[in-house]
Nucleic acid binder design. Structure first.
Lengths: 161, 161
DNA sequence: ATTTACCCGACTATTTTAGTAGGTTATTCC
DNA sequence: GGAATAACCTACTAAAATAGTCGGGTAAAT
């Protein structure tokens, strides 16, 4: 089982995309600013998300990323699967060779757990997350903060220039 | 979220203990032989299991470990919690400071997932695992194999001696 | 032409995992 | 009493994964 910053970042970034999907392509630097994720790291993650056809890219000025399909049709499990290898709780990737070629004592337990996690994350779409009150509140705060950062940047640019 | 070999080994070892709990204390070297887990590593894990009062130890020849309470009253979640820090899917250990002091966009999602996993693993007792047909089959195979290893060891000892 | 922003590969510090090594202490059997 | 057994303890370590950084490309718009 592997659910670390990588998977969490990917879901956060995709949710950010979903929240701003009505305003044309979203650039990674916008996501980086709002979500506090390093730009270079986002690039690596989006490379994988693109290969899994969860997003499409638009190059050039004003470009960025778009969801490849409706918010309703993208599920958290798909995002985690795209960047992690899987949400698999077994040590043998389900191959039943956990104990030197044979099945270990707890193999079936971890299979059950994997199914459980996968079912849960496969039920939750980006649309559902966008609709949540707690998510909307965090998103609103981030929107205000990023506008402030934007103003700060312009002031700094004016001072330097 | 952290569920790796460490947590899996711990549950496997505890299940082995549960399976042989009617035959007096079980030594770590027995568990090591049957489950293919390194003895030194088992010692580290059992140090934690002992501190969490999931097992009690008996020193000296014929000693080993015993479950500290009934199979029915030990749950998988408790074992994983004892060796891992927790079955927590958030990056902030539930403190809501995932994004530089404030709550990240997906915090509540990972809280929900943590609850889901914890509820699932907290339902499953060692007694339930012992009763499972798939577990019994693996246990029986291991029992035969470890008897064979035992005979082999005696033959080797006889050759050397 | 220049800027924007995606794209790509290589490199790296840090952390965790999984395991080793080498000892000490308690208990039992001879 | 002494040898054997097995828990107990601390420190060390190789390998892997994580979470990045860096430095350059390439495509498209103004």
């Amino acid at each position: 089982m592997r659910l670390t910053t990588k998977g969490r970042y990917a879901v956060t970034a995709m949710l950010d995309l979903a929240l701003h999907s009505d305003q044309g392509p979203v650039s990674l630097s916008d996501i980086s600013n709002r979500q506090g994720i390093s730009l270079s790291y986002l690039e690596q993650l989006f490379s994988k998300l693109r290969k899994s056809v969860l997003v499409t890219s638009v190059r050039g000025p004003g470009g960025g990323y778009r969801l490849s399909r409706l918010k309703e049709d993208i599920f958290v499990a798909q995002i985690v699967d795209a960047v992690n290898e899987s949400v698999d709780a077994t040590g043998c990737s389900g191959r039943s060779d956990c104990q030197g070629g044979t099945t270990c004592l707890t193999h079936y337990l971890w299979c059950d757990l994997s199914d459980q996690i996968h079912d849960f994350l496969n039920q939750i779409s980006l649309a559902q997350l966008v609709a949540r009150e707690d998510v909307r509140q965090v998103a609103e705060r981030q929107s205000i903060e990023s506008q402030q950062t934007c103003v700060d940047d312009k002031i700094n640019a004016a001072i330097i220039g």
